[in-house]
Write a protein that binds this DNA or RNA. Sequence first.
DNA 1: TTGATAGGCAAGTGACTGCTTGCCTATCCT
DNA 2: AGGATAGGCAAGCAGTCACTTGCCTATCAA
Lengths: 101, 101
Amino acid sequence: MVADDLFKALADPTRRTILDELTQKSGQTLFEICARLSMKHQLGISRQGVSQHLAVLEAAGLVETRREGRYKFHDLNTAPLRRIADRWLAPHPSGPEENTP
Amino acid sequence: MVADDLFKALADPTRRTILDELTQKSGQTLFEICARLSMKHQLGISRQGVSQHLAVLEAAGLVETRREGRYKFHDLNTAPLRRIADRWLAPHPSGPEENTP
DNA sequence: TTGATAGGCAAGTGACTGCTTGCCTATCCT
DNA sequence: AGGATAGGCAAGCAGTCACTTGCCTATCAA
């Protein structure tokens, strides 16, 4: 389920802060994001923790990555965000989501 | 944290289905929502489960309630939804969310 | 080639969460 | 009054999640 990945990704405050950082400066590496979370947000989190958060954001389609040599750059993709509110702003004839987990 | 309640509320698929139902028909009671989840969505969930979900949605500001006698009606409030995407669509000078849990 | 840098994989742990069950209160209808 | 209906409170349980630790691979610079 696509919507599920999206909302689950947004549910964590650290992931939302990562999106904030990528909004300010796109194309950051893992270490760069780690440094910013630590410096600007006083987030004492390990590199692995950030890496796992980025994986969740990528699975949700909110972050796209490109490799260059040993560097992996992370870019923001706001497309999924813009469709969130639309779902509940107008009545739908049928439920847009199957809910059988 | 307001944003935290909002995103946590949206993280659960059952709660999103409840929002779908309230979009279709506003002002439903707890039992009415229970019946619709069971009939239309094959969700085998207890009344307490639905009640707890509604409490979370109300804490997030997505649902507002009004009592009339022994009935409690639930109405949708889409205002918080419309501000979600805005956060990451334009760069912010400083982080809009404190992240010190 | 050696060391340093950037990142990945996997297992373990503590906390949170969704859900149930059991019991209780309040309102309405005969 | 008495039963039925609508809803609330609280404890308990199982599954999920965020995070850490330890080790491994790949690229670059000397």
